[in-house]
Design a binder for these strands. Structure first.
Lengths: 344, 344
DNA sequence: TATGAGGATGGGAGCGCTCCCAATTTAAGT
DNA sequence: ACTTAAATTGGGAGCGCTCCCATCCTCATA
């Protein structure tokens, strides 16, 4: 029913081969032929069948975006959304399509292998997964290239796009130190995720470099959820910190909520720095100073690296670590240092 | 390189045809053969090539999820995420994969037609789009089935999954009326979207049924963004409303922010009802009474209807309108009526 | 023992493309 | 005009499946 190459060939009076060359922009076709065929293609509204093309060429021009369910549950910030947007954008520019795979614990094992091996997808982007995720094993045995978004210790040689969480946490903590805060606490991210661990590390390093010792009473464990920020803040209050580096903006929301309940003012009584720069960070009261993570850009880069690897399989694996950027707003006081940057 | 049907045939000692029957669970195969073939499939870790299968069978078992960019920009709530989750879940259960297409204004026209016609996708789900979106035209001429999430006046005969925005707004407004509020204002959703219009309609209807006249000074135009909630609230303040129905929780965040700035208390001075029940609604101070929109379920249903239509093309188009559910929290006072429902 | 009905199996054709090589045309050179 | 190279074009094979029909068994029955 749909228009095929052969149809174009017949109508235009050229052969299947010549039509194929024109469709794919290959050289070695006379101007006349190219013109004629282009016209017919236009006129019959022909679109190549990707399945046939993929089957014949051995490449589908599809990339798979894998998002473990845990991740999509933990983050109710727009992480998912911006990442997809970035991946999708770059893919489309390069004539690749995106297949989405959101893991579901029930189907997980069977389903991931099917997704990896069904021949529809030439390579994968895996959004930050938990350590020990069963997907890791599946990934180890796939012959297809993949790129991780967020490092994964179990896959040390894989291509990765990440943001430098150590340095981000370091910068955030240092910002607090520079504004004169002394008792700097932290609410950590999930210990099951590499980013969580790295952000603790950066926090500790900053304190040490400033000549302070790390006080474990000032470290509250969180898991990136709003609720854990709320409880984490309550846990810290008896220690009377004068500043808190919170490992995600989402948790910062929870911390704000806790502080409001007990009447502690930000930034007067306590300074807060978050991480991520989610859209609502700018609208919190007071607006939240935070480390901006360029998620969309990470999506762009992941797709770019992957597509490059698909097209040139001999490429070495790449690791791109982006620097998060300090966005100074009101939650640390010191308007002297302020100067928010616009638009994400 | 990958294992093919033919490989299984050779190793198992049966023919391609018999292997195919086993793979597809067809009858007419001896127990012995089925057993043997199943073993070999397992042993060689065979997965059918979907491209070849699709090409031969004329159906790819893929559904396309189309999300216009405007939508993904406007909503920084997890709409996108929950919808994808719902679609993906149901699809996977039925052995369909999901291809994601996020529109990009630059590529839009060319790209959407390619996506619709490349033969990879058997049908589409289109997330709520603006009226007048160019995608509508493309959709009109596709021979493939599709399901809209959110009604679209320009496509009156299409299958639709939607939530009853009129009745939701009605219920929200009525809830305010029942708690004794008299001057009930509203901040509207985007006029470019059907849901925005319907929510105004429900609001007005509720007032009228209660014997009140609609006062246009009490209607502030919003566009679903946090900022428009903030400014909308300021616009309403001189009119001294004692309650506001806000057409999205996202805008309710903005309204809260405005109210905090001027020191007006919720719910004492003013009652608020939102719409959507985004995860953070429960954590606002005071927690937000809102109409819960079952987005994930809408995703499930959309996928179900679509897959059914793909498998049985003669099915009539379906319209499923779900009722949003009132979730009573603290923002309207009247704890007498309260009784929050848990878990979305 | 012959016969036929079913169940079980095998193999050809073809889905719409790409890839490769052969055939044909055209241009260039002597 | 005659050869040779280059530019164009055409068509076969095959990608890994499904679908359909032909073949081959195996029994029960006459």
């Amino acid at each position: 029913m749909p228009v095929t190459l052969e149809d174009i060939a017949e109508v235009s009076g050229y052969s299947r081969s010549t039509v194929s060359r024109v469709i794919n922009g290959e050289p070695g076709v006379s101007h006349r032929a190219r013109q004629k065929i282009t016209d017919v293609v236009e006129q019959l509204n022909y679109h190549p069948n990707q399945a046939a093309r993929g089957l014949a060429a051995g490449q589908m021009n599809n990339i798979g975006l894998i998002i473990p369910e845990t991740v999509s549950f933990i983050f109710n910030d727009p992480y998912f959304q911006f990442l997809s947007l970035g991946v999708s954008q770059t893919s489309n520019e390069q004539d690749f399509s995106v297949m989405l795979w959101l893991s579901d614990p029930d189907l997980e094992r069977k389903s991931i292998n099917k997704f990896l091996n069904n021949g529809l997808v030439d390579g994968f982007i895996i959004a930050s997964m938990l350590m020990g995720d069963p997907i890791i094993e599946a990934l180890k045995s796939t012959p297809r290239p993949f790129v991780l978004v967020g490092r994964q210790p179990a896959l040390p040689d894989a291509s990765v796009v990440d943001c430098d969480n150590v340095q981000g946490a370091y910068a955030a903590t240092q910002h607090l130190l520079k504004t004169g805060r002394k008792r700097i606490a932290t609410i950590t991210g999930s210990e099951g995720m590499q980013s969580g661990i790295n952000r603790i590390e950066g926090y500790q390093k900053a304190l040490q470099d400033w000549g302070l010792t790390v006080n474990h009473a000032l470290i509250a464990k969180g898991d990136y959820t709003e609720g854990s920020g709320y409880f984490g803040m309550f846990q810290l209050l008896p220690e009377k910190p004068d500043a808190v580096f919170i490992a995600s903006d989402n948790m910062a929301h929870g911390a704000y909520r806790a502080l409001k309940e007990v009447g502690i003012r930000v930034p007067d009584d306590i300074a807060i720095v978050g991480f991520d720069d989610i859209p609502s960070a700018d609208q919190m009261t007071p607006s939240l100073t935070t480390m901006r993570q360029p998620i969309r850009k990470m999506g762009n880069l992941a797709a770019e690296i992957l597509i490059n690897k698909i097209n040139y399989p001999d490429t070495d694996s790449q690791r791109i670590i982006l620097n998060p950027e300090l966005v100074v707003r009101q939650s640390c006081g010191s308007s002297a240092l302020a100067g928010s940057i616009t638009l994400r």
